[in-house]
Amino acid sequence: MKMKKIAVCVLSVLALSSISFGARVASDQQLVDSPIGVTTKGDSVGAGVPFEVRVNVIPKGPELGLFDENGNLYDTVVFDHGTKLAGSLPRSVVKKTVILQRADGYAFSATADGRAGTATYTGKFDVKSTLYNKATNTLTLEKLSSSTDENDDLVTMDTELNYIKGDREVSATDNQLRSEFNSVILAGTQAVGGQYVGTGTITASLTVK
């Protein structure tokens, strides 16, 4: 009986040991785990990123807004080039379609209940930003935290922001004015580690003819 109790105790200790020193569990966070040196059978490594699902619903009306090609009202037009490795960057292009339209979808010249109007317009898109050079289509991104280089100059990155400029004819029956905006990082652009951001406002307007 005494030996049986000892055997039970040994098994209990082994069970607790297997729990305490069990297989390595994969991380559910970014940039924590590395597969280097993980060679024990049953050990896991990995990464995780939070997610959420959301939708915002707005009432319909004659007010103008800027929408994407799926009919979603923009809150902010984000050109996200993702995470790059420092040094010489590869060419990167992010495209966004921006559409000026009424929230009710009726023609620009229509009445509140959708009856056709007769007004015609010229329409155009514009970019308002102190960081944007319209002559060269250059948008200067600034490295966050206002860090400086060895010459005490602000660390920046020049990118391109291209879109259709100039006035366009808009008829009485048109219900959209659209443009494609391309944010471009040119191949060979040099960058040190950090986050670079350039901000401004994309606008669209109609002028009655």
Rank of each mutant, 00 (worst) to 15 (best):
N72K: 09
H81K: 07
E169V: 07
L73V: 13
G82K: 06
T122D: 13
K124M: 14
K165I: 05
E63V: 02
T122N: 11
D75S: 15
Y74F: 15
D33V: 04
G117Q: 05
A187Y: 09
N133L: 08
I6K: 11
E150I: 07
S44H: 11
D152A: 13
G61H: 01
V155G: 09
K60F: 13
T173L: 12
V94R: 02
D43G: 03
L131I: 00
I202N: 03
A86C: 07
A116R: 07
L89H: 12
D80V: 09
V53F: 01
S109D: 09
A15H: 12
V170I: 10
R91M: 14
K165R: 02
A26D: 01
D104V: 05
G198N: 05
S34W: 04
I185W: 00
V78Q: 15
E150C: 09
G123Y: 07
S92I: 08
S27W: 00
F79R: 14
D167Y: 03
A112G: 07
N133Q: 13
V55T: 11
T138M: 01
V77K: 10
D153V: 08
T201W: 00
F125T: 01
D126K: 12
G188S: 07
Q30M: 09
T189A: 03
Q190I: 06
V192P: 10
E52H: 11
G198L: 00
L14E: 01
V55Y: 06
A135N: 14
K134G: 15
I185H: 00
S171C: 14
G114S: 10
A187C: 03
N151D: 15
S18G: 07
T201N: 04
T159F: 10
G166T: 08
R91Y: 04
T148S: 10
A86K: 12
E142T: 13
P50Q: 00
S12H: 00
L177R: 03
A135G: 11
V45Q: 12
R115Y: 15
G42S: 04
S183I: 02
D149Y: 05
L186Q: 11
V197H: 05
T148Y: 03
V45W: 14
S17D: 04
I58G: 07
A204P: 15
T207Y: 00
K209M: 06
F79M: 13
E52F: 11
G71H: 09
F79S: 15
Q29M: 08
E63L: 03
T111I: 07
V93P: 02
V25K: 15
A26Y: 00
D28P: 02
S171V: 09
F181N: 12
D80M: 08
N175L: 08
T130G: 05
K95Y: 11
T83G: 02
A204Q: 14
Q190F: 09
A15E: 10
I202H: 03
